[in-house]
Design a protein around this nucleic acid. Structure first.
Lengths: 219, 219
DNA sequence: TAAATAGTGTCTCTTAGACAATATTAT
DNA sequence: ATAATATTGTCTAAGAGACACTATTTA
């Protein structure tokens, strides 16, 4: 490792985005396979250099849009990683964001550079990710688990209309454990953010579930 | 404002540190008066460019040490501010940290460049700070207020030995409201992090207070 | 003994967890 | 009628706020 010098470091800044969704009842995130060095062939989070005149969040939203086609999403700055040596190309600092999208809104497209892009259940991520992305993802999952307990971010993972059972599935996927149905419904009730609809989800041979929508400031 | 270009932005990265302490029963933070442009004469948080081979946290610790002479402190990354236009010198992104130190450990020295440095009660900050530092400080105070509720960060603002009344003073200074003495002591008791000492604080003409020290992982 | 601060316990309300039976639909 | 999922309430334990008196020291 290089010793600390007395001159300002010449740095570049990227943003990387942990894009979460719920798929098949499990928490998933989007990774792209790198088509170029370094870490060619490894899976990495969507991200890239910030452009002229672009705010950090705008850059994160741009990366997210390029990979999923989704524009209006919940996004939040996570942490900034800047250890020397985290990127073999030089001193590159990355501002990490995480975003939550409903599966039905995400149109994942094979990324630019003919690189693959796919969803991965967080419990089954590839062994070796590019850069320090494994650590960043750990932070993101931890943060999401913490925030779902005392905020309403969880609702961002659902389509506009959803049943209470679907909502519970999301919470269970993130908590990683089953929740008691009656306690869960009481808790949601107390949040006072659901609007009952005169619509029902009718699936197999069972009682249909009432649908709700999320009511909040603007989103 | 400049339109977003298609090329990576040429950026520089600084760290800025909100250094908190308790002085005269009030939450204070350290500001330095800028000796050079831009914002010459305005008050600003200690900070500066990161150096070669230095991690972000190392840079923050260095700035803190340069301003207060304190080395071992509680420090935590706060948020990264990178809007274009936040610094008139160009595209400068700052990674903000906040630190907590006990007043008895801080030896604030007149900063380099013959610039002034002094503590300010957060309720009486100068009207116009340099850059977007007012906003950064708002974030820091908010974060500290939130974290003191569910962590033990508050203990970092006290000397090694302290009485329960002194501890309560710290909590009240941060919460900004008086706390019930019995409820407060029960709450601290439940944390199970205080070691009672066979020493007493004897002040004026009143009953001496038992001293305690903070017991935790390493610090 | 007066002034000043330290130290201490109970009641109540709210919150969160554990826990099971009935309701409604399609087949 | 059966299978499948939705919907609903109570008891209990723990945590948090409101609240007032006694103890110990110095001047």
């Amino acid at each position: 490792m290089k010793a600390a010098g007395a001159r300002p470091a010449r740095v570049q800044v990227t943003v990387d985005v942990v894009i979460f969704t719920i798929r098949d009842g499990a928490l998933n995130l989007l990774l792209v396979r790198r088509g170029i060095e370094p870490f060619r062939g490894r899976w990495a989070m969507p991200g890239g250099f910030i452009l002229e005149g672009e705010s950090l969040e705008q850059a994160a939203l741009r990366e997210l849009r390029e990979e999923t086609g989704v524009a209006e999403v919940y996004i939040e700055q996570l942490y900034t990683f800047g250890d020397p040596g985290r990127d073999p190309r030089g001193r590159i600092i990355t501002v990490a964001y995480y975003a939550l999208i409903a599966m039905d809104r995400a149109l994942v497209r094979a990324g630019t550079d003919a690189a693959e892009a796919r969803w991965w259940p967080v419990a089954e991520l590839p062994k070796r990710l590019a850069f320090d992305h494994a650590r960043i993802i750990e932070h993101a999952v931890e943060r999401l688990r913490a925030k779902i307990e005392y905020t309403t971010v969880g609702f961002q993972l659902l389509p506009q209309e959803f049943s209470l059972s679907e909502l519970q599935d999301v919470y269970e996927a993130i908590a990683g454990r089953p929740l008691d149905k009656r306690n869960f419904r009481r808790r949601i009730e107390l949040l006072d953010v659901l609007v009952p609809l005169e619509r029902w989800r009718r699936g197999g041979a069972s009682r249909p579930a009432r649908l709700y929508r999320f009511r909040a400031g603007s989103f």
